[in-house]
């Protein structure tokens, strides 16, 4: 072992590097890092769950509109669009944040209705669909007037 001086010095250098590595690691890796559940699927930083859960929700669901819009809510929930949430047409409730009605979408254009109701072969057969606005109006025996849209004949909250 007499002529191994240089090897011993080499090993000592790497031991120091190793200790340094673990010291830095214990400082940088968050304490909540652990195994939750199995190692294969549950190894993660524990705080991440709470962080993800604390993100604020944007859409507030139809129930939240009931408080101020009782009458429309009742009409809507008994009508043909009862399965269509308020926010599907009116956008996220959060638009109401500044308490101005202007920021809530009230799209009564034909295009707005056609997103769901234009005839697409892929749509379920029993679903109400029309080929285009003009031919549908004619079929009903009416004349297409200027600035006419679907709401002339169909109340959006009570379409049938």
């Amino acid at each position: 072992m007499k002529h191994c001086n240089h090897i011993i010095r080499f090993i000592v250098v790497f031991i120091f590097i190793g200790i340094g590595f673990f010291a830095v690691r214990s400082y940088l890796v968050p304490d909540s890092f652990g195994i939750y559940g199995s190692y294969s699927y549950g190894f993660h930083r524990g705080d991440s769950d709470a962080e993800q859960a604390s993100i604020p929700a944007l859409y507030q669901e139809s129930e939240s509109c009931k408080e101020c819009h009782e009458a429309v809510y009742r009409t809507w929930s008994n009508g043909g669009h009862a399965g269509v949430t308020c926010e599907a047409c009116h956008g996220p409730w959060q638009a109401h944040n500044e308490n101005t009605l202007d920021t809530v979408v009230k799209d009564t254009s034909v295009e707005g209705c056609m997103v769901c109701h234009v005839t697409l072969q892929a749509r379920p057969a029993g679903f109400p669909q029309i080929d285009d606005f003009a031919s549908h109006v004619k079929e009903q025996g009416e004349e297409v007037q200027q600035d006419m849209d679907c709401t002339f004949c169909h109340e959006p909250h009570e379409p049938k």
């Binding site: 007499k2 002529h3 191994c4 001086n5 240089h6 090897i7 010095r9 080499f10 250098v13």
Partner: peptide, 19 residues
């Protein structure tokens, strides 16, 4: 680079060789 060890005797080189 030499880590301060300047031993290049026969025995040291033999150890190096093995490593």
């Amino acid at each position: 680079l030499a880590l301060g060890s300047l031993d290049v005797s026969e025995e040291a080189l033999k150890v190096d060789h093995k490593f």
